[in-house]
């Protein structure tokens, strides 16, 4: 079985100039956690997910792991300020420009291995053709649907 057999092709994508404020709204409304960012010609530009957004909203000393436990702080003013300041930026500013991708003829095993061995925050594998055109995505559930 190959990537093309399990990938989802009916995917909601975002243009690179979509604003982060709209991204947050879409994430909340659709209860999705990631979107492929695709240009007008259908080429994959990157992936934006909820973790990328959080990484940009949280202060760097928390993201870097220098300060892991912040339970003593009931709220952080700067969090609201940072979110507010980001609202009008395009998603292209925070998207992962080099996400791991697979080709349609990659085996399911290869897809599973790639997904497992990339950072935990990557859980959408875009499928692209040789020219970088976006064809679909593979989510973790797609890998094991067969069992059901």
């Amino acid at each position: 079985m190959k990537a093309r057999d399990i990938m989802t092709t009916d995917v909601i994508t975002l243009p690179p100039d979509c604003l982060i404020g709209d991204l947050v709204r879409k994430l909340a409304e659709m209860k999705l956690q990631a979107f492929p960012v695709v240009d007008a010609n259908g080429n994959l530009l990157g992936i934006v997910n909820i973790w990328r957004l959080l990484r940009h909203v949280l202060p760097p000393y928390i993201v870097s792991g220098d300060l892991v436990d912040v339970r003593f702080a009931p709220d952080l003013n700067q969090l609201h300020e940072r979110l507010a300041s980001m609202r009008n930026q395009p998603v292209s500013a925070i998207m992962n420009r080099k996400p791991p991708t697979v080709r349609p003829d990659h085996s399911v095993l290869e897809c599973a291995a790639l997904m497992l061995n990339t950072p935990k925050t990557v859980y959408l594998l875009p499928v692209v053709d040789e020219s970088g055109r976006f064809l679909g995505i593979i989510a973790p559930l797609d890998l094991i649907k067969e069992i059901a």
């Binding site: 202060p59 000393y61 220098d66 300060l67 912040v70 702080a73 952080l76 003013n77 700067q78």
Partner: peptide, 14 residues
């Protein structure tokens, strides 16, 4: 300093 500096950054931010 590994323990104090990150808390300092957060306090300074606030």
């Amino acid at each position: 300093v590994l323990l104090v500096a990150p808390v300092t950054l957060l306090i300074a931010d606030e």
